[in-house]
């Protein structure tokens, strides 16, 4: 038999294949997507109800509340990032495929963000209106979430990979990941608060951007390593 050549597909081809796969799966299981979104809406809406309709207070707490709600909502879907693939054996097939596991992981993270992070970014301004946020603050909120939620997915992927196959992994992954997400929360909420206090927004957003780039370089690689350890 002639020696078969290594069948690598292009980076873009592999990303496209895996993103299409995960998005198709998400479309077929819409309930999962809606859970995250509705959780976000409910948590953020509880605060005005509990605290009362004093506009000044609401405006002050708004950035923090929306960001904390987004953080908690993104934890909900982390458990599913790899566990379904692990349980039905598709994950081991991905690891045995002659393709880069880091690239596959990156595609899965991106698809996860599209399904669970992007809807939060889109719905956030409507929630912001409940808190009487100014138009400028809403724009900054959207932008900070746009930079920040992918980081949550990337840090979460590492946690999800490490807790794969463990009993009660769902709660554990939140305990593991939430502390690591504190910088994202500080700079994300900080950017929106800066609008209200009139200080510079760009420094907060620049730091968020730097965190995003750092996560983008490290997370797929670390997650792939963690997956290999978890599969043993």
């Amino acid at each position: 038999m002639s020696r078969p050549i290594l069948k690598k597909i292009s980076l873009v081809g592999l990303l496209g294949l895996m993103i299409r796969r995960d998005l198709l799966l998400a479309v077929r299981r819409r309930a999962d997507v809606l859970t995250t979104l509705i959780f976000f809406i409910i948590v953020a809406s509880l605060f005005p109800l509990a605290i009362g309709s004093e506009m000044g207070t609401l405006r002050t707490i708004a950035p923090g509340v929306v960001w904390v709600a987004a953080l908690l909502a993104s934890m909900l879907s982390l458990g599913r990032m790899f566990s379904a693939d692990y349980l039905d054996g598709t994950l081991e097939q991905m690891m045995l495929a002659p393709q880069s596991l880091s690239t596959i992981v990156l595609a899965k993270i991106f698809a996860h963000w599209v399904v669970s992070g992007l809807p939060l970014v889109i719905i956030a301004p409507i929630l912001g209106l409940q808190f009487d946020m100014s138009a400028q603050a809403l724009w900054v909120l959207i932008f900070s979430l746009l930079l920040g939620t992918p980081i949550l997915s990337m840090v979460g992927a590492v946690g999800a990979a490490l807790t794969l196959g463990l009993r009660g992994g769902g709660a554990l992954v939140s305990l593991l990941v939430l502390p690591l997400c504190i910088p994202v929360l500080i700079f994300g909420a900080g950017a929106v608060e800066a609008v209200a206090s009139g200080s510079s927004v760009s420094s907060h957003l620049a730091l968020l951007g730097a965190l995003l780039l750092a996560a983008l370089t490290l997370s797929p690689w670390v997650t792939a390593l963690a997956l290999r350890i978890s599969m043993e």
């Binding site: 078969p4 796969r21 039905d88 054996g89 002659p98």
Partner: peptide, 18 residues
């Protein structure tokens, strides 16, 4: 990966998405 390109594994789990 060079080795993985030359083998196929069928495990206990079917590796199919429902």
């Amino acid at each position: 990966d060079e080795f993985h390109a030359e083998m196929i594994y069928v495990g206990h789990l079917n590796g199919l998405k429902d």
